[in-house]
Amino acid sequence: MFHDYRHDHCATPARGGNGERVLIYHLRDVVKTREAEGVTFKLRVPSLQIALGEKIALIGESGCGKSTLLDLLTFISRPTSVGAFRFRPEPGAAPIDIQAHWKQKAYDDLSDLRMLRLGYVMQTGGLLPYLTVRENIGLSRRLLGLDPDAVDELAYDLGIHKHLDKKPFQLSTGERQRVAIGRALAHRPSIVIADEPTASLDPIAAQRIMALFIEMVESLNITVIVASHAWRHVKSLGLRRLKLRIHKDADGGVAETIVSG
């Protein structure tokens, strides 16, 4: 049912030439510690491998370290210690050593990598209020110098083509989330990361939009990671769930979270 927009990145299946899985993320012994008000929180990732084209669910209550992990995976937060942290945006590409970029303070390169390879859907909006829906969706394409034609088709598939010339404040919350999804997908990133994309919606709308979102990334062959606080939101969508092990301290706060998958 969806148009095939793919012309920027090739849509090879997530397997290399000799049949082995191509890993978009490869993390080994990555640790991020955070200190807030004297309480130390530690996120540990002994091993995390996500293949190109995979659909990943990251389920856990708020404060368990989901966002910390997402910040690591979007290169906006620097890991405390790293065994290995490699990012391979497409099958033919050489893996990129993310930790080396952090060490060399090559922050602008990480920004460029985000611009080219990453789409991000925030919990609410994250749209620029002064741009129209069309301009908001087209922003990522515009930054990369890509033609804006794909925006209309995308908006049609997202069911927001009637609102293309409106400003975000004229839309309902659900419509705004559709716009946010549009912007995250418009430039055909290698991976889309969605942090509680439907948490601010009513259950019926949430389910509909989540299903639409997953269907679209599937048809576009984009790898996706969805963070959510409840498994039931994504249960029926065929996502692979990462394992979270949470250790609480004596006060019941989260002291350490171990993610693997």
């Binding site: 922050y107 985000r114 991000y120 994250g126």
Partner: peptide, 9 residues
């Protein structure tokens, strides 16, 4: 958000 979509510092 602008930093997230790839603008440099």
């Amino acid at each position: 958000m602008m930093r997230l979509v790839g603008f440099h510092t």
